[in-house]
Design a protein around this nucleic acid. Structure first.
Lengths: 220, 220
DNA sequence: TAATGTGAAAACCTTCACAGCT
DNA sequence: AGCTGTGAAGGTTTTCACATTA
């Protein structure tokens, strides 16, 4: 499931380039993955290809889009209009993909009422009503870590079905709410492991800790 | 490796809360994972716990930090100072974790020279010299999709060792460069699959497409 | 008693290899 | 000839279950 959107993106590109048909091998080269992986993934959802030819770009794109629900407009709201929240609301990449931010909320009374882009910041107490009335399904959370779980609990109560969380926490949600986290610091921290030893040598930092107990870095 | 930073964060929290010792079970509850998983993960790097008691928070935190290289200061640069780049450079979460943005670059001559926070935007031609001189190891890429691969190729030439990519592309890098992607749209698209059917029913959208060929959503 | 560390089992995911279609 | 779709093989990750130790 995490790879399907990747295929969609590559196919859009191919379409823009005017390519009509693509093989699993060509797609694999673009996305740095094996053709077998791509075929297996696609075969899970149907038989989209033609043996001896490949996949029709247009057709496959359409099919994958439907499977993922990219043909639907997804009503979305933003919680937290600090620096990060403002950057998100001004990011031009969401709307073209069908993710429309219809409302923005903040718990800071100083923020409430201020206009951002085409909408004005609402107080948290309006959350439930707005989510229901405007049929908002997805929430984007951009509040400080300390408030994140509380905000997410409120969202869950409003029957939000998906949450894109930017706060650096691991929130608890019921199983029927889909959660995705965006956390650049975690991403950085998970890469330093692979950078560590080489850099350490260069720096000749004299820390003679008893490392070497752990296994060798399995460099991708 | 992707989970270790999660443990570090949970442990920091526990430390801040004044907890001395934690069991795999307690940690698991916080992070929504099985105790066995946590024990296996940790045992891969050493024997950090005490049977019958659990793990000393302070000690485990220290050990994991060293394994991940969080005790090192990582010199970092930013490429692209548009809206997104500016948000990144102003994000206060990197520096406390040891990721210092020491330089910013942009290919737009109009941007070059403008001051942002404590540094001034440099032209791309300075990249190699600055990266070398200031011992920059990690680059954060926040340029438009169309330029991303080109910029990343330049970074690779400068012997950058890690790249945090915000551009919505799947860049190609040599095996010895560590790449992490931040892509909120992909995250959203990978969650809509699980939201689709229910919402569709509600909306009573009359699209009577022949779905149902695919398997049922295997939630999470 | 309470929890770790760890072999073994189970589950899951990826790759192989080839029959079969165009 | 060229490429898909797919069982089977191979590999990796997770969970189980328990001996061991504080």
């Amino acid at each position: 499931m995490l790879r399907l959107p990747l295929y969609v993106r590559a196919l859009s590109q191919l379409q823009a380039e005017g390519t009509d048909v693509v093989s699993s091998h060509q797609l694999g080269k673009r996305l740095q993955m094996t053709p077998a992986q791509i075929r297996k993934d696609l075969s899970y959802f149907g038989r989209f290809g033609k043996q001896g030819r490949g996949y029709k770009v247009q057709f496959l794109l359409q099919e994958l889009g439907e499977i993922l629900g990219l043909d639907i407009r997804w009503n979305t709201c933003l919680i937290g209009v600090g620096r990060l929240g403002r950057a998100i609301i001004n990011y031009p990449g969401f709307a073209p993909e069908g993710f429309n931010i219809l409302a923005a909320f903040d718990s800071d009374p100083g923020q409430v009422g201020t206009p951002i882009r085409n909408l004005s910041v609402q107080p948290m107490k309006d959350l439930e009503k707005t989510v229901t009335d405007r049929e908002i399904v997805i929430a984007i959370v951009a509040v400080p870590a300390a408030q994140a779980q509380m905000v997410i609990d409120q969202l869950v109560k409003c029957r939000i079905r998906g949450i894109l969380n930017y706060a650096p926490v691991a929130p608890q949600v019921p199983m029927d709410v889909v959660l995705r986290n965006i956390d650049p610091v975690l991403s950085l921290q998970s890469m330093t492991y692979y950078l560590r030893d080489q850099t350490e040598a260069e720096q000749a930092s004299v820390k003679t800790t008893g490392r070497g107990k752990g296994p060798q870095p399995a460099r991708r």
